[in-house]
Nucleic acid binder design. Sequence first.
DNA 1: ATTTCTACCAAACGCCCGTTTGGTGGAAGC
DNA 2: GCTTCCACCAAACGGGCGTTTGGTAGAAAT
Lengths: 209, 209
Amino acid sequence: MDANILDDISHADPAQRKDREERWAQVVAVSAALFAQKGYEATSLREIAERVGMLKGSLYHYINGKSDLLVHVLREAHSRGVLVLTKIAEREGQALERLEEVITAHAKYICTERVFTAGFIEAHRHLTPDRAREFDVAERNYRKAVERLIARGQVEGDLRDDLDPKVSALCLLGFLNSLHGWVKPASGLTTRRLCDHALAMGLGGLRKT
Amino acid sequence: MDANILDDISHADPAQRKDREERWAQVVAVSAALFAQKGYEATSLREIAERVGMLKGSLYHYINGKSDLLVHVLREAHSRGVLVLTKIAEREGQALERLEEVITAHAKYICTERVFTAGFIEAHRHLTPDRAREFDVAERNYRKAVERLIARGQVEGDLRDDLDPKVSALCLLGFLNSLHGWVKPASGLTTRRLCDHALAMGLGGLRKT
DNA sequence: ATTTCTACCAAACGCCCGTTTGGTGGAAGC
DNA sequence: GCTTCCACCAAACGGGCGTTTGGTAGAAAT
């Protein structure tokens, strides 16, 4: 079933494999760009195929259905975003410093890798529960890591301890993701300044005054 | 063209008018619920008509096209949300207090009127620029009002003045709207507690320490 | 030289969408 | 009692979608 994507292809010679992989990467990249720009539903296979230079039916040599594209786009997004951020959150050290790092990295990711951050919420609607689980788990892990960070910050005395860590984590991540909605490249706001601003506002509500 | 919706109907007798208006309100309410739940594109006229108890073609006695429904849903949402919040933001008084009121009211609106807050971003994609303008203007007015409030709070000495009011306003409103993404009714979190939390986090980053 | 394989084309399929058209039953107006 | 009007039905329309099927040109393998 998943042969086109997942099967071992070591029996193919290197030249063929490279061709196919390059083409496939191109397809995923184009899909990511279009999904980000117009949303998953509003993007047609015809349009994707056109930008890659083939007919829509030919895409089925790479996929078994449209949602395969979504899965692979989301996987790339997660490997660049959520997974990296989770690792940062789980590093050793003073909680407050870790949290600052996470917030800044998250904001930076949102600003610079715009292609991969759009429509995550929309995306879940278009995946069957079992295909979505993979991403749900990753996102939950990240959220939990931030939650633990906040709790530790409270214990260490840097963060106010009258706020529930879970709700705080949800608020913080929601806030950071919301940056995507209005931050535009070339809006006269440098990434650097935006990250500083996000840090000030994201952390300001958590810090002990 | 717009006869079904906008025309003067004073020549109809009261009984008829009431019937029609009640039916129309029902259609809008059902549309709002479905748009919120599944999104605009994913909601079919067939589905809307079914819940109201008619066939999809019959909806065209009330509308001239599907997007009419979106416009009317958004109008109702704006009149309950953005317009109310703008008025609060523009009242007289100490800026900090006003801002607290706005944040709390905004958070409360998001939590209690869930039907009308979903898919605002998606919505814009499905309206022609001239039909969207109405809503763009209202949202901009609100944002500007909050921006002025923050600027005044800085002058009055309650808010830190090293943050750009415009960026701060965008961050704050983005944060508040992001609550919609994860706040669920009956999640064991009362509206009251959520609003307090949102206030603490939203204001914490702006306040002078 | 023949076979095999691969990347892709060309064309059709069924589905469901938003929209249009023409009609119908029953209440309201004269 | 006849006409008018109105809310709605019944059925079709064209179109775009995701998907399937069968074929083909050309390189690689034997």
